[in-house]
Nucleic acid binder design. Sequence first.
DNA 1: CGGCCAACCTGTGCGC
DNA 2: TGCGCACAGGTTGGCC
Length: 278
Amino acid sequence: MPELPEVETVRRGLAPILENTRIAKACAHAPKLRVDIPKDFNQRLSGALVTRLTRRSKYILMECEDGLVAILHLGMSGRITIHTAGSEHPARAKHDHITLLTENGDLVVFNDARRFGLLVFSSVSEIDQHALIKDIGPEPLGNGFNSAHLAAGLAKRKSPIKTSLLDQKLVAGLGNIYVCEALWRVGIAPTRLANTLSAEEIEALVPIIRTILEEAIAAGGSTLKDYAQVSGELGYFQHSFKAYGREGEPCIAKGCQATIERIVQSNRSTFYCPNCQK
DNA sequence: CGGCCAACCTGTGCGC
DNA sequence: TGCGCACAGGTTGGCC
């Protein structure tokens, strides 16, 4: 789930709870996720004033007044749940690894069954040079992501376009689902080698990637409106994908009679329409 | 360096 | 009901 739109949805859900708010008590309950949680996690965040929540690619950055930045990644199975002040705060559940209790009495819980997520510290001044951040490509919704950048990046790649778009150095934030969706919508076969795409195809791909991500963020936003009334769980909203997960089902493109197929590329499933995507 | 694979973990769903 | 296997939205270290 957590590709750029889901991470952005989580960030937007957390922002009103955490920004300009002091953390009363921070607790890390697991020694490590993908990497070690800082030993001084509880000490450094308990009492800290959160000034901003931002996002870079699939990382959520929690900035504190003293310049500390907590870098959070949800991995494959990471979830954030908010239990607002006044609601019952449940006992810690299996795989609840990190909890933040705010001065207002809101409780933020990070749960990650597979522990592919991570939380590490950096600082405002060093964040851009942090090993996890520095090589990431442009944000797909920003000006740095354009057909010139994409064309230059694809020209030197001999791997399939599907695999190339998953490379975070080329463009930030795309994952398996939205790459499949973008290639379906633009009509490009996932197996095409990156350096064989025409200028026109690249030109078409850029706005399609943007649109798909923006639509997904909007869909997440629409579920955010009532998250507090429902479950408090952020980031796992219902989606109707056009290609992803639809193996054996009919392609829904107008006039297309073909069936969505699944192949494996670089050990990841790819879903595509063999008729629409050339 | 580019490209590919295995590995990191646990949970779920399916066929038998 | 239980067992074994395939597979899951991400990233990276190691190997050609």
